[in-house]
Design a binder for these strands. Structure first.
Lengths: 97, 97
DNA sequence: TCAATAAGCAACCAGGAGGTTGCCATCATG
DNA sequence: CATGATGGCAACCTCCTGGTTGCTTATTGA
């Protein structure tokens, strides 16, 4: 999931989709210097990470943002931060002792 | 930064360090199946991402966790989530209209 | 019905990521 | 001071990633 987010292009794609509008591949690769194929690959990576889903409608593939993994990532980082804060408190207590 | 976090080994290293204790390379690579060299490389990646810093003390290199980038990542994900929530509100308003 | 649009599929390529091995330098200490 | 612990450096290897090109297959709409 962090790996999926760890690429500029994919992060940009996710931002484009995170407003809730579902968009086609052609549309997502319009204002980019990459090939449609490259964008397709990135979208599949995002899909495998659960960040995005696709449905075929007519002749186009519409991609939609999925918020759950992002929420999970936030929770995870909160845990790391809490771990750190806990360590700080313990250190402070030790010093003041 | 997400890229730095997008690797199991590095995530594990960060967890080990996030309790605030500064640890040597030998120590960090003790209970892992990897070579000390591999661990060293990962630590450098984390360092380049600002997640960790190293100082040489005696014959060993002590690595310490830096919380700032993690905080920044949390803020970033909050923004994405807010963007999404905003989109939802707008959608709801539109539907109820 | 036929041309244009949207996208899937497959092969291919260069470069970087992750990992190993071997060797050398430095520090701590019995 | 000699020896073991710690780690830096460099070369090397393999495989995945990000990207391209070329071609085929729907779908749409004039």
């Amino acid at each position: 999931m962090f790996a999926a987010l760890g690429d500029r292009t994919r992060l940009a794609l996710l931002m484009k989709l995170s407003d809730g509008r579902t968009q086609s591949i052609a549309r997502l690769s319009a204002d980019t210097r990459l090939t449609r194929q490259a964008v397709t690959k990135h979208l599949h990576v995002l899909e495998r990470a659960g960040l995005v889903s696709s449905i075929r409608v007519g002749r186009e593939s519409r991609f939609a943002y999925h918020p759950e993994p992002v929420a999970a990532a936030r929770t995870y980082l909160d845990m790391v931060a809490a771990h750190w804060d806990g360590a700080l408190s313990r250190l402070r207590a030790m010093v003041e002792e």
